[in-house]
């Protein structure tokens, strides 16, 4: 397996780019790339030339997460001011503006069927699930407080269970969320029930992703510079991969399930061969922290794999994955 650089767009945004996701192709158009930045805009790019299609404004304070519906028609973007804007990709019409105070908004993900939008709720120690037809909250998945004396755990750094990241299992039945203290919580979505914690990290988990084929296999990226592999149902830590020299900010798994890519504060993007559990390639396109990366979802007549990464250096890089 190999990554090959295709194109980089310098100054894709006016300032640091913090979020990236692929919008799946629809019948009328090919897949698009969606990026969000501290410059308060969301931009839409046409692959592979990375031509800017549109710039969406309307957020104040930096855009921290973008998510695209699996059907490719709608997308959501969220910013530090804790508003989620749901919009039509082709027309940029606002479909809904979501907020659930006092819960703030961090990472968002649509479930694989597109019926629910999961939003990591930061200090509320919960994940909010929004129905994508009515845009009402259908459930709040709360992380139970750890046993033991309650008040003592209220550190000055805020709640220990500050929820940063979410991931859906490929069958849509499980949801995992990562928090500031490094624990990962797993929920049974149909029953809206907390299942268990996955331990192993002790620093913030900023990104999580399930393997596309194995609904139990979960990858997590943490500030401790490690990527962990968990058996999400069996509570077991399967493996731990080290190689980055600073925080691992994002992780995504390739559509074929054979590799994962990670982006790190050490400015690199690494490709890991899961059969060897070792980094096989390190890309150094970026000159600052790589906040996000995403493999293009398969579908349509697209054979070739694509990976996009975004960074504090204001640029977007696109790679061929084969």
């Amino acid at each position: 397996m190999k990554l090959g650089g295709i194109k980089s767009v310098e100054n894709a945004h006016d300032d640091s780019v913090w979020a990236v996701t692929w919008v799946p192709a629809t019948q009328t158009r090919p897949p698009l790339l969606l990026t969000g930045s501290i410059d308060e805009t969301v931009r839409i790019w046409r692959s592979d030339e990375l031509v800017l299609e549109r710039t969406n404004t309307g957020h104040s304070l930096g855009v921290v997460s973008v998510a695209a519906h699996p059907l490719g028609s709608i997308a959501a973007s969220s910013s530090i001011d804790s508003f989620v804007r749901v919009f039509d990709i082709d027309s940029n019409a606002t479909i809904a503006t979501l907020e659930a105070p006092p819960s703030e908004v961090w990472q968002m993900r649509f479930d694989p069927k597109g019926a629910i939008l999961a939003v990591a709720g930061g200090g509320s120690a919960s994940v909010k699930l929004w129905d994508t037809s009515t845009w009402e909250i259908v459930a709040t998945l709360s992380i139970p407080w750890p046993e033991g004396p309650g008040p003592k755990s209220t550190d000055k750094s805020g709640s220990k269970k500050f929820v940063l990241s979410v991931a859906w299992s490929p069958d849509g039945k499980r949801l995992a969320c990562g928090s500031m203290d490094g624990t990962i919580s797993v929920f049974d979505v149909p029953r809206a029930k907390f299942l268990h914690h996955l331990e192993g990290h002790f620093m913030p988990v900023r990104s999580l992703v399930y393997s596309p084929f194995d609904p139990r296999l979960l990858f997590s990226a943490s500030d401790d510079a490690h990527v962990h592999m968990y058996d999400a149902d069996g509570k077991g830590l399967i493996g731990s991969m080290s190689g980055h020299s600073s925080w691992v900010l994002s992780v995504d798994v390739s559509p074929d399930g054979a590799a994962i890519a990670t982006g790190s504060s050490d400015k690199t993007v690494k490709l890991w061969d899961l059969s060897m559990r070792a980094a096989v390639q390190t890309m150094t396109n970026h000159s600052d922290q790589v906040w996000g990366l995403a493999f293009r979802p398969p579908g349509g007549d697209l054979r070739s794999g694509r990976l996009a990464s975004v960074s504090d250096d204001k640029s977007i890089s696109l790679y061929d994955y084969s």
Partner: peptide, 21 residues
């Protein structure tokens, strides 16, 4: 303000940063 936003992004659970912002 930008610097504080970056700091918030790095340390989301630090509410003091929000206050400062």
């Amino acid at each position: 303000i930008k610097t504080l936003l970056r700091a918030i992004h790095l340390a989301p659970s630090n509410y003091t940063l929000r206050f400062d912002a």
